[in-house]
């Protein structure tokens, strides 16, 4: 097990090859795609399922059973459908993000106070306008929190997926460093980098959360 000094030297070893940049970019690239595809699919579906009680009732058992399955358990299927490579990793991140996000959106919609809905109806909004002008803005604060948590999950999944399903990225760096000569200094160096990048991603979404346009939802709590 390497000390802090060896770890720092390990990080320094990685820099000249440009390997570190390449691997960070590879991981972030996969996360971005998987995450955005999941958002694109989950938000509209969640709005609809949250609004139509019957749809939520119908989907609920399937969602509840799929949710506790580790995204990594999908690896055999990902490889079967997409082969070893970027696409498989993106698919795994999508799987990991889609369900938590969908459930978050559904519960956010169901948590919108009935007064808002009634006020909207009172002004004669059509269902579509109601969704766009009342439901969506009303869930934005909780949606932002859901997005932040989901991005965290995406980052956890990509690293794990890279350890098994592809041969680049920060997860691969860790496995490779161990298998090719027990370079535990590089293993720990990889872990530190993973932690830092994850923290940066989290901070980025956090500052978005605090952006003035969404402020109202968070001030209520104080």
């Amino acid at each position: 097990m390497p000390g802090p000094l060896k770890t720092v030297r390990g990080i320094a070893d990685l820099v000249p090859h440009g390997l570190i940049v390449k691997y960070v970019v590879a991981s972030v690239f996969r996360v971005t795609w998987g995450f955005f595809l999941a958002v694109l699919a989950a938000v509209p579906l969640g709005l609809a399922a949250g609004w139509y009680r019957r749809a939520e009732m119908a989907l609920n058992p399937i969602l509840q059973i799929l949710r506790p399955i580790s995204p990594l358990a999908w690896i055999p299927i990902a490889i079967l459908w997409f082969g070893v490579g970027d696409l498989a990793a993106v698919f795994l991140i999508f799987v990991g993000c889609f369900l938590p996000l969908l459930l978050a959106v559904i519960s956010a919609v169901q948590g919108v106070p009935a007064v808002y809905i009634n006020a909207g109806r009172n002004f004669g909004l059509s269902p579509i306008a109601l969704m766009r002008r009342i439901l969506f803005p009303a869930i934005v604060p909780r949606l932002m929190t859901g997005l932040r948590i989901t991005l965290g999950i995406a980052w956890l999944v990509v690293v794990a997926a890279e350890m098994i399903a592809v041969n680049s990225g920060l997860g691969f760096l860790i496995v490779d460093a161990r298998n090719a000569g027990n370079r535990y200094d590089l293993v720990v160096a990889g872990m530190v980098i993973i932690g830092v990048v994850g923290l940066l991603l989290d901070n980025a979404v956090h500052s978005l959360e605090r952006a003035s346009a969404f402020r109202w939802g968070f001030e209520e709590k104080a």
């Binding site: 956890l156 999944v157 860790i174 161990r178 535990y184 293993v187 872990m191 994850g198």
Partner: peptide
Amino acid sequence: PISPIAWIPV
């Protein structure tokens, strides 16, 4: 943010 899986070598 470090995946528990990344701890496997450790």
